[in-house]
Amino acid sequence: MKNYLNLLTDIQNSILYLTINREDKLNALNKDTLAEIHDCILAALHDESIKGIIITGKGEKAFVAGADIKEFSNFNAEEGKNLAKEGQEKVFDLIASSKKPVIAAMNGFALGGGLELAMACHIRIASQNAKLGLPEVSLGLIPGYGGTQRLTELVGKGKAFEMILTADMISAEDAEKVGLVNYAVESTDLLPKATALMQKILSRSPEAIAAAIKAINAFDHTQSGYQAEIEAFGTCFVTQNFKEGVAAFLEKRKPNFH
Rank of each mutant, 00 (worst) to 15 (best):
A194G: 06
F92A: 04
K100H: 06
N27W: 05
Q199I: 02
A126G: 05
L151Q: 02
I55V: 10
R150M: 11
I95W: 06
P101A: 04
K81T: 09
V137A: 01
K100Q: 08
E23D: 07
N21F: 08
S171N: 07
N6P: 00
N241P: 06
I15L: 02
G113E: 09
A67R: 00
G52F: 00
K100L: 10
A35E: 14
V185Y: 06
I69Q: 02
T19K: 08
A62I: 02
A232T: 11
S203T: 10
A126E: 01
F249H: 15
L45N: 13
D93N: 15
I170F: 06
A110E: 06
D24E: 15
A196Y: 09
Q227H: 11
V155T: 12
N13P: 01
Q199P: 00
F75E: 01
S138Q: 10
P206C: 02
L26Q: 09
F75S: 07
A232F: 05
V137M: 10
S97N: 15
L139M: 12
L180H: 01
C40E: 08
E207S: 14
L16Y: 04
L42Y: 08
K254F: 12
E207C: 04
A208L: 15
P101W: 07
G158H: 08
H38D: 10
L202I: 06
N129T: 12
F249M: 10
H46G: 09
D68Y: 10
A35L: 11
A212S: 14
Y17T: 01
S205K: 07
F109I: 01
G133K: 02
G144I: 08
I55L: 04
I20N: 00
N3G: 07
T9H: 01
K81P: 00
G108R: 05
Q88N: 12
K177I: 14
L26F: 13
E229Q: 12
T235C: 04
V246D: 01
K214W: 04
A130D: 05
K177V: 15
K200E: 15
I125V: 14
I69E: 07
I54P: 04
S73C: 08
A167Q: 06
S49G: 00
M169I: 09
G108F: 05
V181A: 04
T56M: 09
F237T: 07
F249S: 09
N13K: 11
L134Q: 07
N217E: 11
N6G: 04
H258T: 11
I123P: 00
A247P: 00
G112L: 07
A62V: 04
M169A: 13
Q199K: 13
L132P: 03
L94S: 14
D168W: 03
N256S: 14
N217R: 13
K61W: 03
A208M: 13
A130K: 04
A105P: 14
G66V: 01
F233P: 03
S171R: 06
E176D: 08
D10P: 01
T239K: 11
Q12C: 03
K254R: 11
A118D: 09
K90Q: 14
I230W: 03
T148Y: 06
D220A: 14
F109P: 00
K51N: 06
V102C: 11
R150H: 03
E48D: 13
K90R: 15
L180D: 02
A77H: 03
H38K: 13
G113I: 05
G133H: 02
Y17W: 05
E136A: 14
T148A: 08
S98M: 05
A248E: 10
F72R: 02
Y17K: 00
G156P: 12
A210E: 13
P135L: 00
